[in-house]
Amino acid sequence: MSARFAVGARVSVRAAFPPGHVRTPFFIRGKTGVVTAILGPYHNPEELAYGRSGEPALPLYRVSFHTADLWRDYDGSTKDSTVVDVYENWLDDASGEKN
């Protein structure tokens, strides 16, 4: 397995809404963040949940978001951040996007 994204890469979370078991929370879908760590290959939970092998394993990333980017009326500090672990099949390259 080679990870598609490097630490520091800008990535966007797919705005996808499949009906079954996934581990990508609703509140980050369609949002853009930065990879802060590559956690390694992990079996695909979307397969494991249905009794299958989970192969091929997927790279799992820590993705950091500005919390103020996640909520339109966030009233905390602009410094605040939210970090979520996201499997690679949910991420798109967002290096072209300006922030």
């Binding site: 956690l39 992990y42 799992l60 919390t67 500090s77 605040d80 951040s81 939210t82 672990d85």
Partner: peptide
């Protein structure tokens, strides 16, 4: 305090 970053970790996956 406002000048301290609050960093929320949502443990969604294997860790």
């Amino acid at each position: 305090p406002e000048d301290v970053e609050v960093r929320v970790h949502d443990s969604t996956a294997d860790l």
